Computed example of a mutant assay.
Amino acid sequence: MIVTKTKRGTNLEDVQEMNRSLVIRLMRRRQVCSRAELTQESGLNQSTITNIINELISWGIVVETGVIDGKKGRRSIGIKLNCEPYKIIGIRLARKSITVALYDLEGIEYSKQQIPIDIADGSTRAFNRMKELIKEMISSNSVGQVIAIGVVTPGPLLRNEGRIGLMTYFPGWEKINIQEELMRDFDLPVYIEHDAKAGALAHWWFGNSHQEQGVMIYVAAGQGVGAGIVVDGKVFRGSLGMAGEIGHMSIDFKGPKCECGNRGCLELYCSTSALLQTLNKEHASLKSVWKAIHEEETGDAVEAVRQAAWFLGFGLVNIINTFNPDRIILGDEFAEAGALLHDTVRSVINEYVLPDVSNKLTVELAADDMDTMLVGSAIVAIESILDQPSSYLNQQT
């Protein structure tokens, strides 16, 4: 027998919460604004906006800034978000490091600490070190309180279960329920996400294009390869939270066997781990590889990077034909290859994708001024908080 879920109705409380969420999100984009501007942009009536702002002021999440000039010379009281009292712990778990940072509700970073981890030490010891960093970060916070924790991990990630399904090059993490253990140890809500999806969300939040609609794909090409797919501002996750696991998409069914059990997986050809294996006699670190390709026009390093970039581009052709994105952003460690990566990927796309599609697609390198996946770990938690602001921001409850 097939059981179908009936569609749930919308209660007045749900509508009020959606309106609060809308107003806070509008204020985040506008910085200082007036109640009249929020009324116009939100489509809500003036009395509703007045009631919501009064409520948010009483919670401490909104403050008045004084008189500001409006349209036609009209003056009004300015308002803005007061995000500093609400802190988020953001955590990025990678195969060789753990980074923990403190953010406020606007995604502004206050402090950060990174430690190396090694497969020889095991996943349990690495996880315990993560917990120690979280304790130190919570203790160091001097303003407001930590209200949530966001964690991003390599994949495949079983997001709905709160654990990693497989971390290539670092086994053992699949035995740890990261979300459940952190919630128990710190008595805080914990949100877990695949690192590429978090990176995509960070680019949607802070990207220069201020994109509101469309399809954007962030490609995390580092020690593994994954993709975050954002559609109209929402991350596409799939039924188990594993959508975008392009590193385990086969590009050669007769290729080498991957730890996932498949053959010819994309990350075996274009991850930075694979790149270092190819160049193990000439280069022991990525820093050495990037130095070589930026100083030389030819050579083993240049050819190895170009070949890896070609494979990545070839894999992205399949993603383009599947999701038809407006933008693709190339990020994580491989992005440091710069123009060589971008131009090679772009040329492969131009060759193998229909011109009517490729001509309308933007391909760009991720900005190198922030760790987008680390920032994304905080944004994953912030997004959940903004969806239910009364549960997290009402200090009177």
Rank of each mutant, 00 (worst) to 15 (best):
T10H: 15
V32M: 09
D332R: 08
V3P: 02
L279A: 10
R346N: 09
E333Q: 12
W173C: 02
I319P: 00
K197N: 14
Y392G: 03
A220M: 03
L182V: 10
G66H: 03
P116V: 08
H210Q: 11
G315E: 05
N54A: 14
H248L: 01
N128G: 14
N318S: 13
L102V: 11
G60D: 06
K7Q: 09
P189L: 04
A378D: 02
E267R: 14
G233A: 13
M370W: 14
G78Q: 00
C33A: 11
L354G: 07
A120M: 12
S285W: 09
S140C: 06
D300Q: 08
K96S: 14
I2M: 11
F206S: 07
R8T: 14
V289K: 03
S390M: 05
K96H: 15
A274W: 00
F253P: 12
I320K: 05
Y392Q: 10
G224T: 06
S142I: 03
C33Q: 07
S384E: 12
N141W: 00
K257T: 06
A227L: 10
A309S: 15
K281N: 14
D118C: 11
G107M: 03
L286P: 02
W310K: 15
A301H: 05
L240Q: 12
S347L: 11
Q395H: 07
L81G: 05
T39M: 14
E351V: 05
T168G: 13
N141D: 08
Q388K: 08
K135V: 05
K197P: 01
F236T: 02
